Simulated assay, not measured.
Amino acid sequence: MRRELLTPIPLSELEELAKRAGADVKLTLLGKSGRNGIVLNRVLIEGPEEDVGRFMEKLRLARAGG
Results as ranks from 00 to 15, higher is better:
10 P>A: 15
6 L>V: 05
8 P>D: 14
63 R>S: 10
51 D>A: 12
18 A>H: 00
13 E>S: 12
6 L>P: 00
61 L>K: 14
1 M>V: 13
11 L>I: 11
18 A>S: 06
1 M>P: 10
35 R>S: 15
50 E>A: 15
53 G>N: 00
11 L>E: 01
22 G>T: 05
46 E>H: 00
15 E>C: 08
28 T>H: 09
17 L>A: 07
47 G>V: 05
4 E>H: 14
32 K>Q: 09
16 E>Q: 07
30 L>N: 13
6 L>M: 05
22 G>E: 01
16 E>N: 08
45 I>F: 11
66 G>P: 00
48 P>K: 14
20 R>F: 05
16 E>M: 05
48 P>R: 15
20 R>M: 09
44 L>M: 05
20 R>N: 11
29 L>S: 08
64 A>G: 04
5 L>I: 15
23 A>S: 15
52 V>G: 01
4 E>F: 14
16 E>I: 03
8 P>A: 14
40 L>Y: 15
57 E>L: 08
66 G>H: 07
10 P>Y: 08
15 E>N: 07
65 G>M: 00
21 A>F: 04
66 G>M: 04
8 P>L: 07
63 R>P: 02
32 K>E: 13
65 G>Q: 02
6 L>S: 06
52 V>W: 02
16 E>G: 05
46 E>N: 00
46 E>Q: 00
51 D>W: 06
37 G>P: 11
37 G>T: 11
58 K>D: 03
16 E>A: 11
30 L>I: 12
25 V>P: 08
19 K>V: 12
27 L>V: 02
44 L>R: 15
33 S>V: 14
18 A>V: 03
41 N>A: 09
11 L>Y: 01
42 R>Y: 09
33 S>C: 10
51 D>N: 04
52 V>E: 00
64 A>D: 03
61 L>N: 12
42 R>W: 07
7 T>H: 02
